[in-house]
Amino acid sequence: MPLRRTPPKNTATGSDIDGASGFLSDSQVTDVSHNINTARLKRKRDSDIHEFMIEMRNAFSNFTQEQNSKFLKLESTLSENSQALKDIQVSNRCIEEAISFMSAQYDEFRTKINTLEDQMVQDRNYINTLENKIEELQRDSRKTNFEIKNVPKKPKETKEDLVNMIIGLSKTIDCPISKSDIKDTYRVRGKSENAANSPVIVETTSTLIKADIQKMCRAFNTRNKVNLCAKHLGLTIAEDTPIYVGEHLTPRATRLHFLARELKKSGAFKYCWTSYGKVYLRKTDDSKVILINSEVQIHQLSQQQK
């Protein structure tokens, strides 16, 4: 069945033609010209869009090819460096294992060192305890002894000569003793065989005798302008050689007594003395008495005075 189209409303009819000459009117000419220009512009626009799409396709294709080329180069480079990376990874693992081993060794050594340090502290404390006990034993064994320093040595000196010197000293200071009061006496060996005036040690039978002799010796030196000397021992050689009677101190106490005397000489303390093998200091007549137990204590006292 044939289709029929309704003619457009604006379609020109025979009555619109200017007379019978068949020419278009001005308005009709304008409409035709506008339609022609519109068609041309549409074709041009379609052509521009088509060209733009072609350019975009080409640009995208070039970009894709360039990216593929770069990717291939990167893949090639990674492939070349793959072995190097593997070697580095192996080296890193070896380093990590070495560091872990060294860390474990360090921890083990640190633990051993801490254990040894703790043991050293314990040993030091134990040694100090033993030294104090030995000091007490030595001091107890010497509690009845006294010492005469700077005694001239007689030629071919015998123990009997020493006993006679001690008895002569006791008579001089008005504290006479007998031979039975002397348990033993001997001269301390010097650093060399020819050492002169080495100390003489006297062991009495009781601490009372020792204390009385020391007390009377101090009293004698206080009463007389001339202090005790060799002639008061009954010696006829080097008679004017001064002698000193004091306690028979242990090596440790002797050292402490020396350092305490040096501290007294510096003017920091007024009094320094020994009693029953112990060393004491006193700063003034009214200050408390300080018992010296160690060299560290003397060092601390010295620092306090500065």
Rank of each mutant, 00 (worst) to 15 (best):
R4I: 02
T11C: 11
A12S: 13
T13M: 13
I17E: 13
D18R: 03
G19Q: 13
G22S: 11
F23D: 13
F23R: 10
L24W: 09
S25L: 03
D26E: 12
D26A: 11
S27W: 13
V29C: 06
T30I: 07
T30S: 08
T30A: 11
S33T: 09
I36K: 07
L41P: 00
R43I: 14
A59F: 08
A59L: 10
F60A: 15
F63I: 14
K70F: 14
K73I: 13
S76K: 15
N81R: 14
S82D: 14
L85A: 10
K86Q: 09
K86W: 03
I88S: 10
I88M: 11
V90L: 15
I95N: 06
E96V: 02
M102T: 10
S103W: 03
S103M: 00
Q105C: 09
D107N: 14
E108I: 09
E108L: 14
R110L: 08
T115Y: 12
L116V: 03
L116C: 07
L116Q: 09
Q122F: 07
D123S: 12
R124L: 03
N125A: 00
N125S: 03
N128Y: 01
E131F: 06
E136A: 09
L137K: 05
I148R: 08
K149T: 12
N150F: 06
V151F: 05
K154C: 08
E157G: 01
V163D: 04
N164M: 07
I167N: 05
G168F: 13
K171P: 00
T172Y: 02
D174H: 13
S180D: 15
I182C: 07
A195T: 15
S198V: 06
T204S: 07
T207I: 04
T207F: 10
K210T: 03
Q214L: 15
R218A: 12
T222K: 14
R223Y: 08
N227I: 03
C229L: 00
A230L: 01
A230T: 08
H232V: 01
L233Y: 04
G234T: 06
G234S: 04
E239M: 09
T241C: 12
P242R: 06
G246E: 11
H248A: 10
T250P: 01
A253P: 08
A253L: 02
T254Q: 08
T254N: 02
F258R: 08
E262K: 11
K264W: 00
A268M: 08
F269S: 03
F269Y: 15
W273N: 01
T274N: 10
Y276G: 09
Y276L: 06
K278V: 00
T284G: 02
K288E: 13
L291Y: 03
I292R: 00
I292Y: 03
N293D: 05
S294R: 01
Q297H: 05
I298K: 07
Q300G: 04
Q303F: 09
Q303R: 15
Q305Y: 14
